[in-house]
């Protein structure tokens, strides 16, 4: 289900020598890719950003026992960033997210089943290291 982002169409942050610059084309951005490409590192940088930006909420495996489903259901006008989605999101939550027009999502995982995404909504991380600095961007996976 392809709709425009309802919270942010770009997210930029810096963590020491790491820079994140994501252009968000759709309301759900699903990020896939090989292990070790920096997905969880980027999540930790965005977690840091969330401490200063109340529009952003971050959830990962550490929230598994913390009623994260209610956190998502009670959110309005948030960019919800979910790492470890293959563990956290069951079929019901995937359906909720797919039909939620009030929040925006960045989801890091492997299996986008149930989110009703088109191929061009599935992204991969692209990283470039130059002069000791690493920059992360998104590119289409297909």
């Amino acid at each position: 289900m392809k709709i425009k982002p309802v919270v942010l169409d770009r997210i930029q942050t810096r963590h020491t020598s790491f820079e994140v610059d994501f252009i968000l084309e759709n309301n759900i951005t699903f990020i896939v890719g090989d292990s070790g490409t920096g997905k969880s590192a980027v999540f930790s940088f965005l977690q840091e950003m969330a401490a200063e930006d109340k529009r952003i909420r971050c959830l990962n495996y550490l929230d598994q026992k913390r009623n994260y489903r209610n956190t998502i259901r009670q959110s309005r006008g948030k960019l919800i960033i979910i790492d470890n989605a293959d563990i956290l999101l069951d079929d019901a939550m995937r359906w909720y997210i797919a039909t939620d027009g009030q929040n925006q999502y960045i989801i890091i995982g492997r299996n986008p089943t149930g989110l009703m995404l088109k191929q061009n909504e599935i992204m991969e991380l692209s990283s470039q290291t130059y002069d000791g600095k690493t920059r992360f961007e998104l590119m289409h996976s297909f």
Partner: peptide, 28 residues
């Protein structure tokens, strides 16, 4: 280390347990 790498190492060092591989990338 990435979750995929940690999963591979968990499997190697713990043959008495079963490990969920849902978070592993193709390389893992």
């Amino acid at each position: 280390l990435s979750t995929g790498c940690k999963t591979a190492l968990n499997i190697l060092y713990n043959p008495d347990k079963v490990f969920d591989i849902r978070e592993c990338g193709d390389n893992a």
